[in-house]
Simulated scan of single mutants.
Amino acid sequence: MPILIKIDDMLHARRMTLTELAGKVGITLANLSILKTGKAKGVRFETLEAICDVLDCQPGDLIEFRRDDAAPDVGS
Rank of each mutant, 00 (worst) to 15 (best):
I27V: 09
L32Q: 08
D8Y: 02
I34E: 08
I5L: 04
F45A: 03
S33D: 10
T17W: 12
R14W: 06
G23Q: 13
R14L: 04
D53Y: 12
L21F: 02
G42Y: 00
V74M: 11
I63V: 15
G38L: 09
G38N: 10
F45P: 00
A30I: 11
K39E: 07
K24C: 11
I5Q: 01
N31V: 13
A70D: 14
I5C: 03
F65P: 05
T37K: 12
K39A: 07
G26A: 01
A30R: 10
F65E: 06
P2F: 04
T47G: 03
D53V: 13
F45W: 05
L62I: 06
I51W: 03
M10E: 03
V74H: 12
T19W: 12
E49G: 06
S33G: 14
T17M: 11
A22M: 01
E46G: 06
K41L: 02
G26S: 03
S76A: 14
T28F: 00
M16I: 07
R14N: 09
M1P: 14
D69G: 03
G26L: 02
M1E: 15
N31A: 14
E49V: 07
R44M: 02
E20V: 05
P2Y: 06
P2R: 11
I34L: 08
R67H: 10
L32M: 08
K39N: 10
D9W: 00
G60W: 03
T28Q: 01
K41R: 10
L29K: 12
L29V: 13
F45R: 02
A70P: 07
T19R: 15
L11W: 03
